[in-house]
Design a protein around this nucleic acid. Structure first.
Lengths: 215, 215
DNA sequence: ACCCGATTACTCGCAGACGAGCATACGCCG
DNA sequence: CGGCGTATGCTCGTCTGCGAGTAATCGGGT
């Protein structure tokens, strides 16, 4: 599935989507993308812009139109999107929408090593996360309401999605915190003992050696 | 905040967490991590293992213990975690748990350029996504139930989190699909006209030029 | 009229990441 | 007991991402 993209950086997707409307030079793309808040929707690093544009051109997805020069500035090359570029944009979008990729939020990585902390510290840190999350959610909700008055829904779906997912995260964290504070999480006692004494609880010891059979 | 990690690859986190228990050589780490399903929780590329271990050693987070040799194989270096490594592991975990980072799921990027497709194609693709998502969710639920019988909850929280978040995604997609199929999404008519004729709807035209004021 | 800080527009070097490839060992079948 | 397919264990070259740095220009204060 998902044949590897010739230019894989998502900044390239944003660039293509901007050039669909009209040709631009790189810095103008940056302006337009920033104005549309695309840097909120993707992990965009502006330092990569010129590299990405060059790569797109190299693969025939963009073509240089003209170079003009103002004053003693370096000349600015204006690019237009090619047919191949249009195809790539559409195909890539189709894939991003239709195929759910397993994502790997950093929080998940953190949770998977939660055992290195003690239960009390874990509880405290999760509470901090929840606090911050709720602040961010309130901000996001306000921003969405504000934009909703001037921008068509179609261009806000990604923000709505983001909000929904983060809301679910907050709910889940609240649930876990609840189990931790009421003590209803199974294995809490073993976890605490393990962390305080350093000794692996007897019922867990055997698991730890799972998949370790080597000569 | 979040001072840059000396070794930023999350594979390094996994390596540190494995070496907390006992010293190992790299290939053994791979076996243990795989057995624990850590490659499910993080974007692990095994091709990076030796690079990452070398970097960890370079920064004093690991130390070589011994090199033994079996047959004519290349010698295998056994590494142990250092005090600095232990500190890094704990500090990194704390950060991952307590500080919610703005993540950028690829789906969000896709949604932000949804306009390049027409509403009918978008609907069809979203339906495909929902189908696949539901299959994956069923699998994940089954796997979680199976593991739940032998592994303590503590080591399954990351899978539970993942499930909860993806469930929220499915719900959200279902909601959007609903608005699309019933036609209740505002601007649907404009969107369709725009896509069929290529002409930007009058009420949207002005927005498109937003943030474009350049000489 | 001139200076200085901010903004604009771009460049470059370095550090990783990672996939493909390779060499050794093992197991199984004839 | 020899040959071959598969698993093991590791290396290396390439490619790209990106942050820090820089040069030109603008603006506005005195």
């Amino acid at each position: 599935m998902a044949r590897r993209r010739r230019v894989g950086n998502l900044l390239a997707l944003a660039v293509l989507s901007a050039l669909v409307e009209r040709p631009m030079h790189p810095y103008e793309m940056a302006g337009v993308l920033r104005a549309r808040g695309k840097d909120q929707d993707m992990p965009i690093k502006w330092g990569s812009l010129y590299t990405v544009v060059a790569n797109l051109e190299r693969h025939g997805l963009l073509a240089a139109v003209q170079s003009d020069r103002q004053g003693r500035r370096p000349e600015r090359t204006v690019y237009r999107i090619t047919e191949a570029g249009r195809d790539e944009l559409v195909d890539w979008t189709r894939e991003l929408i239709a195929v759910p990729e397993r994502e790997h939020p950093r929080f998940e990585a953190g949770l998977s090593v939660l055992g290195v902390l003690g239960p009390d510290e874990a509880t405290e840190l999760l509470r901090q996360r929840l606090d911050r999350l709720e602040t961010q959610l309130a901000d996001a909700r306000a921003a969405l309401a504000r934009h909703g008055r001037e921008i068509p829904r179609l261009f806000l779906v990604e923000a709505e999605y983001d909000l929904a997912v983060r809301q679910a995260e907050a709910t889940w964290v609240r649930g876990l915190l609840d189990e931790l504070t009421t003590g209803s999480l199974p294995g809490l006692t073993e976890w605490r003992a393990w962390h305080e004494t350093g000794a692996v609880p007897p019922d867990w010891a055997e698991l730890a050696e799972r998949g370790t059979e080597q000569q």
